[in-house]
Design a protein around this nucleic acid. Structure first.
Lengths: 186, 186
DNA sequence: CCATTCTTGAAACAGTCGTACCATAAACCT
DNA sequence: AGGTTTATGGTACGACTGTTTCAAGAATGG
């Protein structure tokens, strides 16, 4: 019939676009500079993704996919005392390599506050963690379906990440987490 | 000599501009729609504030001023058990009337991640809390200059606010704070 | 070779942005 | 009243935005 389509191109540019967004943030993203940085043209970005909104959605999905992929591998599994597990999760989350993901995370949250309709399932992004953390901290939870403890653990992690990204004071953040681990451990 | 200046006008529009930013967020702010909503003109906004950057800076300063003013009055003073004080602060922070301030707070944080140079003293906005909270929770702190405990308390509050603004699940957030208060109280 | 399909470039469109220029109106003091 | 300063409207500029249109190039199957 004719020239066959090349679906690999879209994924290649998606990967590089995700790199760029993780490196430079979502806020000031626009097609022409992005295309220039990716050695392509705005024309092709629209050709491959349809619109900027769909591009951003695809990039966010890809970023979440990457984060999930590394999450399953790196952090220590659910072994040891609760305090040890908490330390492991914090070490993994607060590592410098995760900083771009953390920044994008906060950026998306802030954008979601202004445009709630843009992120229809943003509540799920939080509640999804409860299954994971609920299982990891079941021994310090009040019963089988205690959502308060996972919520508190996530709040501490997010709050300390917020502090760390703002002040850069890693020592203080580490000590605060240590204090929380101590409180949890008794 | 001539017609005297009217400094009250600038403050009037500053107050209304702050209202507008608190109601609609910082992200999509632009002069023309803002001027229309304030029954003035972009011309006058520039005339009074010099540039958009200075306008935004003035609005943020005004918003922080309002928050500080209400902070000194509303939350219960440093009386009662640590758990009671924590509950009081949380009740005040998470009240619906504070939601616009909380949203602006997260918005500014996200913007600061992308443009750190824009907010030269953003670290101070966090460390300033330590004097206040350090004094309020001195009886549960490890010594006089323990920064870990105030850091942890702030992290819990911010993290739970993050959760609350995203999921809207007040019950779960309240229970998580109650759990933290219980951990702190022993 | 050739029709057909995919890919890509260049340019333009309609809109918004912050800002600057120019003029004029309004209000005050001498 | 006149002259001086403040206040304000209108308008235009240049840069940027996402998107569309038109056209031509590239690669394949028949």
């Amino acid at each position: 019939m004719a020239r066959p389509a090349d679906p690999a191109r879209r994924e290649r540019t998606l990967a590089r676009a995700t790199d760029h967004v993780l490196a430079h943030g979502l806020a000031g993203l626009s097609l022409r500079p992005l295309a220039a940085a990716l050695d392509t043209s705005p024309r092709m970005l629209l050709y491959d993704f349809g619109s900027k909104q769909e591009l951003v959605a695809a990039v966010l999905a890809e970023a979440r996919r990457r984060g999930a992929a590394r999450l399953t591998g790196c952090p220590p599994p659910a072994t040891g005392t609760p305090a040890q597990r908490l330390r492991g999760i914090w070490a993994w989350l607060s590592a410098p390599e995760r900083a771009p993901f953390v920044r994008l995370f906060f950026e998306v949250h802030a954008d979601g506050l202004a445009h709630p309709d843009h992120y229809p399932d943003r509540a799920r992004a939080i509640t999804d963690w409860f299954d994971t953390l609920g299982a990891a901290f079941r021994d310090v939870a009040d019963g089988e379906d205690d959502t308060a403890t996972p919520t508190l653990v996530m709040a501490v992690l997010r709050g300390l990440l917020f502090d760390l990204t703002t002040t850069g004071d890693r020592d203080r953040a580490d000590r605060a987490l240590e204090r929380f681990a101590h409180l949890l451990g008794t």
